Simulated scan of single mutants.
Amino acid sequence: MSTTQSERLRGLLEPLAAAKQLDLEEIELSRAGRRRVLRIIVDSEEGVELDTCAELSREISEKLDETDVMGEDEYVLEVSSPGADRPLTEHRHYVRATGRLARFRLTAGPDQDELVARILAVDEEGLDLEVPGVKGRKPTSRRVAFADIARARVEIEFNRKDKKEEEA
């Protein structure tokens, strides 16, 4: 997608997402046969419900029909949340992942390859992590600066208790 089209789409769609207290995370335009697929990824502090995606999809469709930003070619519109395996790239992604287990690829240090740890706290400079103990050892605390993170992704935990369950 050209930069100008991407910028035009972002400028057009960001206010619609913001009106629903959503962050417009990603806009992707790709080909699927003769049609184009426009994928819009949105997220929020509380996550995104299916009904909210459906409402936003209708609003985006109406807005796109009012403008020429998509041109005359046919396209399919998809509006969704990021999914569990999305990379953590923005400060707000780390904040939303607080309490979750994550896999990090670090740029330097003893764990340059990979580190799996729970995100305990996030500030402007980096993360406070809890590294699980191995073979009966206690977990250890670790501080990692954002500059030392090459890649990060939340690990899916099937036996993790949800915050709502813990509060009940």
Rank of each mutant, 00 (worst) to 15 (best):
T107P: 05
F104S: 06
L120H: 12
H93S: 06
A84V: 14
L120T: 11
E124Q: 14
P110Y: 10
L115G: 08
L101S: 09
A84F: 12
G83S: 02
R96D: 06
G99V: 09
R103Q: 13
E124V: 12
P110M: 11
T107V: 11
L106I: 01
G109R: 00
E124N: 12
R118M: 11
D123E: 09
G99A: 10
P87Q: 05
H91F: 13
E114R: 15
T98M: 13
Q112K: 15
D85Y: 04
R92Y: 10
F104Q: 04
L120V: 13
L115I: 12
D113V: 15
V116R: 14
A121F: 00
L115S: 00
E90F: 04
A84C: 10
L115P: 08
T98A: 14
A117W: 05
A117T: 01
D123I: 02
A117Y: 03
T89R: 04
R103K: 15
D113R: 15
A108M: 00
H93Q: 00
A97F: 09
D113S: 15
L127N: 04
L106Y: 02
V122F: 03
E124A: 14
H91E: 11
R118N: 10
L106E: 00
L101Q: 10
T98R: 13
L88N: 02
T98K: 14
Y94A: 07
H93L: 02
